[in-house]
Design a protein around this nucleic acid. Structure first.
Lengths: 172, 172
DNA sequence: CGGAGATACTTAACATGTTAAGTGAATGCG
DNA sequence: CGCATTCACTTAACATGTTAAGTATCTCCG
Protein backbone atom coordinates (compact mmCIF):
# COMPACT_ATOMS: atom_id res chain seq x y z
CA UNK A 1 0.00 0.00 0.00
CA UNK A 2 1.41 3.32 1.10
CA UNK A 3 0.18 5.29 -1.84
CA UNK A 4 1.57 8.53 -0.66
CA UNK A 5 2.38 10.41 2.49
CA UNK A 6 -0.59 12.54 1.54
CA UNK A 7 0.17 15.00 4.26
CA UNK A 8 1.30 18.55 3.93
CA UNK A 9 4.41 17.66 2.00
CA UNK A 10 2.96 17.65 -1.48
CA UNK A 11 1.55 20.48 -3.53
CA UNK A 12 -0.86 21.69 -0.96
CA UNK A 13 0.30 25.20 -1.54
CA UNK A 14 -2.18 26.57 -4.03
CA UNK A 15 -5.36 26.73 -2.11
CA UNK A 16 -3.96 26.48 1.34
CA UNK A 17 -2.30 29.82 0.73
CA UNK A 18 -5.51 31.47 -0.27
CA UNK A 19 -7.58 30.05 2.54
CA UNK A 20 -5.29 29.41 5.45
CA UNK A 21 -6.82 27.08 7.98
CA UNK A 22 -5.67 24.84 10.72
CA UNK A 23 -4.57 21.43 9.59
CA UNK A 24 -7.88 19.84 8.95
CA UNK A 25 -7.08 16.47 10.43
CA UNK A 26 -6.14 18.06 13.73
CA UNK A 27 -9.30 20.03 14.27
CA UNK A 28 -11.15 19.37 17.48
CA UNK A 29 -14.29 18.00 15.83
CA UNK A 30 -12.21 15.53 13.85
CA UNK A 31 -10.28 14.44 16.92
CA UNK A 32 -13.47 13.84 18.82
CA UNK A 33 -15.06 12.04 15.91
CA UNK A 34 -12.12 9.72 15.40
CA UNK A 35 -11.75 8.98 19.08
CA UNK A 36 -15.39 8.13 19.41
CA UNK A 37 -15.35 5.99 16.34
CA UNK A 38 -12.33 4.12 17.68
CA UNK A 39 -14.25 3.40 20.84
CA UNK A 40 -17.52 2.44 19.20
CA UNK A 41 -15.75 0.15 16.81
CA UNK A 42 -15.05 -2.01 19.84
CA UNK A 43 -18.69 -2.25 20.81
CA UNK A 44 -20.63 -2.37 17.58
CA UNK A 45 -19.93 -5.98 16.58
CA UNK A 46 -21.11 -7.33 19.92
CA UNK A 47 -24.24 -5.22 19.86
CA UNK A 48 -24.92 -6.27 16.34
CA UNK A 49 -24.77 -9.90 17.40
CA UNK A 50 -27.79 -9.17 19.53
CA UNK A 51 -29.60 -7.22 16.85
CA UNK A 52 -29.08 -3.90 18.56
CA UNK A 53 -27.81 -0.64 17.22
CA UNK A 54 -25.80 1.73 19.29
CA UNK A 55 -28.77 4.01 19.86
CA UNK A 56 -31.15 1.23 20.76
CA UNK A 57 -28.64 0.06 23.32
CA UNK A 58 -28.39 3.58 24.71
CA UNK A 59 -32.12 3.68 25.18
CA UNK A 60 -32.30 0.33 26.88
CA UNK A 61 -29.49 1.28 29.21
CA UNK A 62 -31.11 4.57 30.03
CA UNK A 63 -34.43 2.89 30.73
CA UNK A 64 -32.83 0.24 32.88
CA UNK A 65 -31.33 2.89 35.11
CA UNK A 66 -34.33 5.16 35.48
CA UNK A 67 -37.10 2.60 35.49
CA UNK A 68 -39.65 4.67 33.59
CA UNK A 69 -39.52 8.00 31.87
CA UNK A 70 -41.35 10.35 29.61
CA UNK A 71 -40.12 10.53 26.07
CA UNK A 72 -38.60 13.96 26.44
CA UNK A 73 -36.74 12.97 29.57
CA UNK A 74 -35.51 9.86 27.85
CA UNK A 75 -34.31 11.88 24.90
CA UNK A 76 -32.26 14.03 27.19
CA UNK A 77 -30.82 11.06 29.04
CA UNK A 78 -29.94 9.04 25.95
CA UNK A 79 -28.84 12.19 24.14
CA UNK A 80 -31.09 11.60 21.15
CA UNK A 81 -33.26 14.03 19.27
CA UNK A 82 -36.99 13.65 19.51
CA UNK A 83 -37.58 12.37 16.01
CA UNK A 84 -34.89 9.71 16.27
CA UNK A 85 -36.21 8.58 19.59
CA UNK A 86 -39.75 8.47 18.28
CA UNK A 87 -38.77 6.08 15.52
CA UNK A 88 -36.59 3.92 17.71
CA UNK A 89 -39.24 3.60 20.39
CA UNK A 90 -41.73 2.51 17.75
CA UNK A 91 -39.35 -0.25 16.67
CA UNK A 92 -38.38 -1.30 20.18
CA UNK A 93 -42.03 -1.50 21.12
CA UNK A 94 -42.73 -3.67 18.10
CA UNK A 95 -39.96 -5.97 19.32
CA UNK A 96 -41.51 -6.02 22.78
CA UNK A 97 -38.38 -4.69 24.40
CA UNK A 98 -40.14 -1.69 25.90
CA UNK A 99 -43.62 -0.74 27.02
CA UNK A 100 -45.51 2.52 26.88
CA UNK A 101 -48.63 3.86 28.45
CA UNK A 102 -49.96 7.36 28.29
CA UNK A 103 -49.89 9.20 31.56
CA UNK A 104 -53.30 9.63 33.15
CA UNK A 105 -52.65 13.12 34.41
CA UNK A 106 -51.47 14.42 31.04
CA UNK A 107 -52.63 12.67 27.92
CA UNK A 108 -49.80 14.19 25.90
CA UNK A 109 -47.09 12.41 27.81
CA UNK A 110 -46.32 8.75 27.50
CA UNK A 111 -44.36 6.82 30.03
CA UNK A 112 -41.80 4.43 28.62
CA UNK A 113 -40.34 1.52 30.50
CA UNK A 114 -38.21 -1.48 29.70
CA UNK A 115 -40.04 -4.80 29.39
CA UNK A 116 -39.19 -8.14 30.91
CA UNK A 117 -37.78 -9.22 27.58
CA UNK A 118 -35.79 -6.03 27.42
CA UNK A 119 -34.23 -6.77 30.77
CA UNK A 120 -33.37 -10.25 29.61
CA UNK A 121 -31.69 -8.91 26.51
CA UNK A 122 -29.73 -6.42 28.56
CA UNK A 123 -28.60 -9.14 30.89
CA UNK A 124 -27.24 -11.07 27.95
CA UNK A 125 -25.34 -8.13 26.51
CA UNK A 126 -24.13 -6.29 29.57
CA UNK A 127 -21.31 -8.68 30.51
CA UNK A 128 -19.64 -8.45 27.11
CA UNK A 129 -20.17 -4.74 27.07
CA UNK A 130 -18.57 -4.34 30.46
CA UNK A 131 -15.71 -6.57 29.44
CA UNK A 132 -15.01 -4.41 26.43
CA UNK A 133 -15.15 -1.31 28.55
CA UNK A 134 -12.75 -2.85 31.02
CA UNK A 135 -10.36 -3.69 28.22
CA UNK A 136 -10.44 -0.12 26.98
CA UNK A 137 -9.90 1.18 30.48
CA UNK A 138 -6.93 -1.07 30.97
CA UNK A 139 -5.36 -0.18 27.66
CA UNK A 140 -5.74 3.54 28.06
CA UNK A 141 -5.25 3.65 31.78
CA UNK A 142 -7.97 4.20 34.35
CA UNK A 143 -6.51 7.42 35.60
CA UNK A 144 -6.01 8.85 32.16
CA UNK A 145 -9.50 7.85 31.23
CA UNK A 146 -10.93 9.71 34.18
CA UNK A 147 -8.83 12.71 33.26
CA UNK A 148 -10.08 12.60 29.70
CA UNK A 149 -13.69 12.39 30.78
CA UNK A 150 -13.15 15.31 33.11
CA UNK A 151 -11.80 17.42 30.28
CA UNK A 152 -14.62 16.42 27.98
CA UNK A 153 -17.11 17.45 30.61
CA UNK A 154 -15.41 20.80 31.04
CA UNK A 155 -15.39 21.37 27.31
CA UNK A 156 -19.06 20.62 27.14
CA UNK A 157 -19.73 22.92 30.02
CA UNK A 158 -17.77 25.85 28.71
CA UNK A 159 -19.59 25.71 25.40
CA UNK A 160 -23.01 25.10 26.84
CA UNK A 161 -24.04 28.68 27.40
CA UNK A 162 -23.10 30.02 23.99
CA UNK A 163 -25.67 28.36 21.86
CA UNK A 164 -28.71 28.32 24.13
CA UNK A 165 -30.37 30.92 21.94
CA UNK A 166 -30.03 34.59 21.21
CA UNK A 167 -30.69 35.72 24.74
CA UNK A 168 -27.17 36.50 25.74
CA UNK A 169 -27.94 40.10 26.47
CA UNK A 170 -29.41 39.70 29.92
CA UNK A 171 -26.14 39.66 31.80
CA UNK A 172 -25.17 43.24 31.30
CA UNK B 1 -14.83 -0.37 39.89
CA UNK B 2 -17.92 1.43 41.00
CA UNK B 3 -20.72 -0.72 39.73
CA UNK B 4 -23.51 1.41 40.99
CA UNK B 5 -25.55 4.09 39.32
CA UNK B 6 -25.55 5.97 42.58
CA UNK B 7 -27.86 8.63 41.31
CA UNK B 8 -31.54 9.31 40.79
CA UNK B 9 -33.50 9.20 43.98
CA UNK B 10 -36.34 7.24 42.44
CA UNK B 11 -36.74 3.51 42.24
CA UNK B 12 -33.75 2.83 40.07
CA UNK B 13 -32.99 -0.16 42.15
CA UNK B 14 -34.96 -2.89 40.42
CA UNK B 15 -33.17 -3.38 37.21
CA UNK B 16 -29.94 -1.73 38.10
CA UNK B 17 -29.42 -4.44 40.67
CA UNK B 18 -29.94 -7.18 38.17
CA UNK B 19 -27.77 -5.66 35.47
CA UNK B 20 -25.14 -3.55 37.12
CA UNK B 21 -23.43 -1.20 34.75
CA UNK B 22 -21.46 1.97 34.92
CA UNK B 23 -23.55 5.07 35.11
CA UNK B 24 -24.71 5.35 31.59
CA UNK B 25 -24.32 9.09 31.22
CA UNK B 26 -20.67 8.88 32.23
CA UNK B 27 -19.63 6.28 29.73
CA UNK B 28 -16.81 7.21 27.41
CA UNK B 29 -18.86 7.03 24.22
CA UNK B 30 -21.45 9.35 25.70
CA UNK B 31 -18.83 11.80 26.91
CA UNK B 32 -17.27 11.91 23.49
CA UNK B 33 -20.61 12.24 21.79
CA UNK B 34 -21.75 15.09 23.98
CA UNK B 35 -18.46 16.92 23.73
CA UNK B 36 -18.47 16.68 19.97
CA UNK B 37 -22.04 17.79 19.76
CA UNK B 38 -21.27 20.79 21.97
CA UNK B 39 -18.50 21.75 19.57
CA UNK B 40 -20.43 21.17 16.37
CA UNK B 41 -23.36 23.13 17.65
CA UNK B 42 -21.12 26.14 17.38
CA UNK B 43 -20.32 25.54 13.74
CA UNK B 44 -23.48 24.16 12.23
CA UNK B 45 -25.50 27.38 11.98
CA UNK B 46 -22.77 29.19 10.10
CA UNK B 47 -22.23 26.31 7.71
CA UNK B 48 -25.93 26.08 7.18
CA UNK B 49 -26.01 29.71 6.17
CA UNK B 50 -23.81 28.74 3.27
CA UNK B 51 -25.81 25.67 2.39
CA UNK B 52 -23.16 23.28 3.62
CA UNK B 53 -23.45 20.31 5.91
CA UNK B 54 -20.70 19.35 8.27
CA UNK B 55 -19.55 16.53 6.02
CA UNK B 56 -19.58 18.60 2.86
CA UNK B 57 -17.44 21.15 4.64
CA UNK B 58 -15.04 18.40 5.73
CA UNK B 59 -14.65 17.31 2.14
CA UNK B 60 -14.05 20.79 0.84
CA UNK B 61 -11.48 21.43 3.53
CA UNK B 62 -9.74 18.18 2.81
CA UNK B 63 -9.66 18.89 -0.91
CA UNK B 64 -8.38 22.38 -0.36
CA UNK B 65 -5.43 21.06 1.56
CA UNK B 66 -4.45 18.19 -0.69
CA UNK B 67 -5.30 19.67 -4.06
CA UNK B 68 -6.55 16.49 -5.70
CA UNK B 69 -7.16 13.02 -4.47
CA UNK B 70 -8.66 9.70 -5.31
CA UNK B 71 -11.96 8.91 -3.69
CA UNK B 72 -10.52 6.34 -1.33
CA UNK B 73 -7.78 8.67 -0.19
CA UNK B 74 -10.33 11.40 0.33
CA UNK B 75 -12.51 9.09 2.37
CA UNK B 76 -9.61 8.39 4.68
CA UNK B 77 -8.73 12.05 5.01
CA UNK B 78 -12.25 13.29 5.63
CA UNK B 79 -13.03 10.25 7.76
CA UNK B 80 -16.09 9.26 5.78
CA UNK B 81 -17.21 5.86 4.60
CA UNK B 82 -17.18 5.16 0.91
CA UNK B 83 -20.91 5.18 0.39
CA UNK B 84 -21.40 8.48 2.18
CA UNK B 85 -18.60 10.03 0.23
CA UNK B 86 -19.97 8.71 -3.03
CA UNK B 87 -23.29 10.43 -2.45
CA UNK B 88 -21.81 13.66 -1.23
CA UNK B 89 -19.41 13.90 -4.16
CA UNK B 90 -22.32 13.42 -6.53
CA UNK B 91 -24.11 16.35 -4.91
CA UNK B 92 -21.07 18.58 -4.68
CA UNK B 93 -20.31 17.92 -8.31
CA UNK B 94 -23.86 18.85 -9.26
CA UNK B 95 -23.33 22.13 -7.40
CA UNK B 96 -20.07 22.68 -9.28
CA UNK B 97 -18.07 22.86 -6.09
CA UNK B 98 -15.77 20.02 -7.10
CA UNK B 99 -14.50 18.41 -10.28
CA UNK B 100 -13.71 14.83 -11.15
CA UNK B 101 -11.89 13.10 -13.92
CA UNK B 102 -11.06 9.47 -14.23
CA UNK B 103 -7.38 8.69 -14.04
CA UNK B 104 -5.86 7.70 -17.33
CA UNK B 105 -3.56 5.10 -15.88
CA UNK B 106 -6.34 3.32 -14.03
CA UNK B 107 -9.89 3.72 -15.27
CA UNK B 108 -11.26 2.61 -11.95
CA UNK B 109 -9.94 5.57 -10.04
CA UNK B 110 -11.30 9.06 -10.27
CA UNK B 111 -9.39 12.12 -9.21
CA UNK B 112 -11.39 14.67 -7.27
CA UNK B 113 -10.45 18.30 -6.91
CA UNK B 114 -12.05 21.46 -5.63
CA UNK B 115 -13.38 23.85 -8.26
CA UNK B 116 -12.91 27.58 -8.56
CA UNK B 117 -16.36 28.04 -7.15
CA UNK B 118 -15.53 25.69 -4.34
CA UNK B 119 -12.52 27.78 -3.43
CA UNK B 120 -14.66 30.88 -3.48
CA UNK B 121 -17.16 29.29 -1.16
CA UNK B 122 -14.43 28.18 1.19
CA UNK B 123 -13.01 31.67 1.24
CA UNK B 124 -16.37 33.00 2.30
CA UNK B 125 -16.81 30.50 5.11
CA UNK B 126 -13.30 30.08 6.44
CA UNK B 127 -13.09 33.36 8.35
CA UNK B 128 -16.23 32.68 10.37
CA UNK B 129 -15.14 29.16 10.93
CA UNK B 130 -11.77 30.22 12.20
CA UNK B 131 -13.37 32.83 14.40
CA UNK B 132 -15.57 30.23 16.01
CA UNK B 133 -12.61 27.96 16.54
CA UNK B 134 -10.69 30.80 18.10
CA UNK B 135 -13.57 31.50 20.44
CA UNK B 136 -13.65 27.88 21.51
CA UNK B 137 -9.92 27.85 22.02
CA UNK B 138 -10.08 30.93 24.15
CA UNK B 139 -12.94 29.66 26.25
CA UNK B 140 -11.45 26.30 26.91
CA UNK B 141 -7.86 27.40 27.00
CA UNK B 142 -5.31 26.77 24.30
CA UNK B 143 -3.09 24.64 26.47
CA UNK B 144 -5.93 22.53 27.73
CA UNK B 145 -7.20 22.12 24.22
CA UNK B 146 -3.85 20.82 23.06
CA UNK B 147 -3.78 18.46 26.01
CA UNK B 148 -7.22 17.18 25.18
CA UNK B 149 -6.32 16.56 21.58
CA UNK B 150 -3.21 14.75 22.66
CA UNK B 151 -5.24 12.43 24.84
CA UNK B 152 -7.78 11.84 22.13
CA UNK B 153 -5.01 10.90 19.76
CA UNK B 154 -3.57 8.48 22.30
CA UNK B 155 -6.94 6.92 22.87
CA UNK B 156 -7.41 6.43 19.17
CA UNK B 157 -3.98 4.95 18.88
CA UNK B 158 -4.30 2.52 21.73
CA UNK B 159 -7.52 1.15 20.29
CA UNK B 160 -6.41 1.08 16.70
CA UNK B 161 -4.78 -2.30 16.69
CA UNK B 162 -7.58 -4.21 18.34
CA UNK B 163 -10.12 -4.29 15.57
CA UNK B 164 -8.03 -4.54 12.43
CA UNK B 165 -7.85 -8.28 13.11
CA UNK B 166 -5.16 -9.06 10.56
CA UNK B 167 -3.15 -6.29 8.96
CA UNK B 168 -1.44 -4.64 11.86
CA UNK B 169 2.04 -4.46 10.45
CA UNK B 170 1.46 -2.34 7.40
CA UNK B 171 1.39 1.35 7.87
CA UNK B 172 -0.33 3.17 10.64
C1' DC C 1 -65.90 29.43 29.60
C1' DG C 2 -63.03 30.00 25.53
C1' DG C 3 -59.57 30.79 22.52
C1' DA C 4 -54.49 32.01 21.97
C1' DG C 5 -50.34 30.12 23.05
C1' DA C 6 -47.36 26.60 25.04
C1' DT C 7 -46.22 21.66 25.44
C1' DA C 8 -45.27 16.81 24.19
C1' DC C 9 -44.76 14.35 21.07
C1' DT C 10 -45.06 12.52 15.93
C1' DT C 11 -44.40 12.86 10.79
C1' DA C 12 -42.08 14.35 7.03
C1' DA C 13 -38.14 15.31 4.25
C1' DC C 14 -33.57 15.31 3.36
C1' DA C 15 -28.62 14.03 4.50
C1' DT C 16 -25.49 10.86 6.51
C1' DG C 17 -23.90 6.30 8.96
C1' DT C 18 -23.45 1.50 8.20
C1' DT C 19 -23.38 -2.90 6.03
C1' DA C 20 -23.97 -5.73 1.99
C1' DA C 21 -24.19 -6.40 -2.76
C1' DG C 22 -23.20 -4.85 -7.48
C1' DT C 23 -20.22 -3.11 -11.47
C1' DG C 24 -16.53 -2.34 -14.28
C1' DA C 25 -11.59 -2.27 -14.58
C1' DA C 26 -6.96 -4.02 -13.37
C1' DT C 27 -3.88 -8.17 -11.81
C1' DG C 28 -2.09 -12.51 -11.10
C1' DC C 29 -1.33 -16.91 -12.51
C1' DG C 30 -1.84 -21.20 -14.93
C1' DC D 1 -4.17 -15.77 -23.49
C1' DG D 2 -8.03 -16.61 -20.27
C1' DC D 3 -10.21 -16.30 -16.20
C1' DA D 4 -10.66 -16.10 -11.26
C1' DT D 5 -9.45 -12.67 -7.98
C1' DT D 6 -8.74 -8.24 -6.34
C1' DC D 7 -9.57 -3.38 -6.50
C1' DA D 8 -12.01 1.15 -6.69
C1' DC D 9 -15.71 2.67 -6.50
C1' DT D 10 -21.18 2.88 -6.69
C1' DT D 11 -25.99 1.32 -5.42
C1' DA D 12 -29.05 -0.41 -2.39
C1' DA D 13 -31.31 -0.86 1.93
C1' DC D 14 -32.05 0.24 6.40
C1' DA D 15 -31.26 3.19 10.64
C1' DT D 16 -30.19 7.58 12.56
C1' DG D 17 -29.15 12.90 12.56
C1' DT D 18 -31.30 17.22 11.73
C1' DT D 19 -34.66 20.68 10.84
C1' DA D 20 -39.37 21.94 9.94
C1' DA D 21 -44.14 21.15 10.11
C1' DG D 22 -48.13 18.77 12.02
C1' DT D 23 -51.29 17.08 15.81
C1' DA D 24 -53.35 16.52 19.99
C1' DT D 25 -53.42 18.15 24.56
C1' DC D 26 -52.96 21.27 28.21
C1' DT D 27 -52.58 26.19 30.48
C1' DC D 28 -53.41 30.55 31.19
C1' DC D 29 -55.55 34.73 30.92
C1' DG D 30 -59.48 37.57 29.82
Amino acid sequence: MAKRPADSANGSATIARQVPMRDFSRSLPMSLLRAREAVMRQFRPKLREHGLTEQQWRILRALASIEAAEVTELARTAFLLGPSLSRILRDLEARNLIERKTAKADQRRSMVSISKEGVKLMASVAPSSEAIYAEITQRFGARKLAELQEMLGQLELCLASTDASDDVADET
